[in-house]
């Protein structure tokens, strides 16, 4: 009965429930009197994430996945829509009312170096959330908590007084994770946390995220373009294309039975590190490139690259449930 989670209202079991989220960015106008031009980064996206679950959000660059994550923590103000967190619509909260919510929602960023302030030591970086949310009362408590957090992410107390540039990419990402954990959050948005890391380090960070999830019952939104890694870590996967969720399903369901032509192409485009498998695989090669999200194609956004395009595709296909919580937005289905 997975389908009922995605129904109307706020389900008790869903920690996060995003409803019709839209985020448009206003672009500079061509002429002074011209019409306003909008970049439709996220256009009417809805999904929910259950407590303790990991939802993977995949898509190519410019599909709006990062904007979606950032809008959810209100780094960007949403154009419209709702985001229910523990049943409360956080888009309606004032910035003062947001502060306690921020203690429960955290974010991990893509670039391990630029996500740490180069002029602050590791203990200042991890200590900042502790001070902001008054989670510590004195210096000793602060240092103890910092050491504890460093330990959690596989670093030691000797690292506390160092500066970010002294660490490798993987270590910086661990520091970023420690900072996110400092406030004891329930929900963490991981925005491409491994794509800037080396292959052997990616596995370290993913394993760490999984261990922490188990230990602290965390809920993740895992944003990435590496479908293999997303499939590894997630329970369900949402595929985005040009600001829309085109398919959302349980990960094995999505892999075994991709319904949307874009998902099919995306899955077949990912090379598998196995020469025999690669020799036998038939690739669906998509023609052309992703259109710009400024004035995207009307109707189905994928119609410019889809080989099954039909006249109905001029109409926008709704995201509908085809059974077992497998949602797809395509007229072919």
């Amino acid at each position: 009965m997975k389908g009922c989670y995605t129904g109307m209202g706020t389900d008790k079991r869903s920690l996060v429930n995003v409803k019709n989220l839209k985020k448009y960015f206003q672009m500079p106008r061509g002429t002074i009197l011209g019409e306003n031009v909008y970049l439709q980064a996220v256009d009417d996206v809805s999904f929910h994430i259950d407590e303790g679950e990991t939802l993977g959000l995949v898509g190519e660059s410019g599909c709006g996945k990062t904007t979606c994550g950032r809008t959810m923590v209100r780094l960007y103000e949403p154009t419209s829509g709702h985001m229910y967190f523990e049943g409360q619509d956080i888009f309606k909260l004032s910035s003062k009312e947001m502060i306690p919510v921020k203690q429960k929602m955290q974010m991990i960023f893509q670039d391990p170096y630029s996500s740490l302030n180069p002029r602050m030591t590791v203990s200042d970086i991890i200590g900042e959330p502790l001070e902001v949310h008054s989670l510590i009362t004195n210096r000793r408590e602060r240092m103890e908590r910092i050491y504890e957090l460093l330990n959690l992410v596989g670093l030691t107390r000797e690292h506390a007084n160092r500066y970010p540039h002294e660490f490798s990419g993987g270590q910086c990402q661990r520091i970023g994770i420690a900072r996110a954990l400092a406030v004891d959050p329930k929900f963490i948005i991981c925005d491409e946390p491994i794509s800037a890391l080396d292959v052997s380090i990616q596995a370290q960070v993913v394993n760490l995220l999984e261990e922490l999830q188990e230990q602290f019952k965390l809920t993740y939104l895992f944003i990435a373009h590496d479908l293999a890694m997303v499939k590894h870590i997630s329970v369900r996967i949402a595929v985005m294309y040009l600001g829309k969720v085109v398919e959302l399903a349980d990960k094995l369901d999505l892999y075994d039975n991709p319904l949307h032509p874009y998902t099919q192409a995306l899955l077949s485009a990912i090379p598998i590190p196995d020469p025999d498998v690669e020799r036998q695989r038939q690739r669906i090669i998509l023609e052309g490139e992703v259109p710009t999200p400024i004035n995207p194609p009307r109707g189905c956004r994928f119609k410019t690259r889809c080989k099954y395009v039909k006249p109905e595709c001029a109409e926008e296909p709704p995201l509908k449930d085809v059974g077992g919580g497998h949602m797809v937005a395509c007229h072919l289905i």
Binding site: Q106, D111, S115, P129, V132, H133
Partner: peptide, 17 residues
Amino acid sequence: EQDYVLAARVIGVSWWR
């Protein structure tokens, strides 16, 4: 627009700080 400033905003650090 740097990630560490975004991170500080997610944490809830005040603008002044």
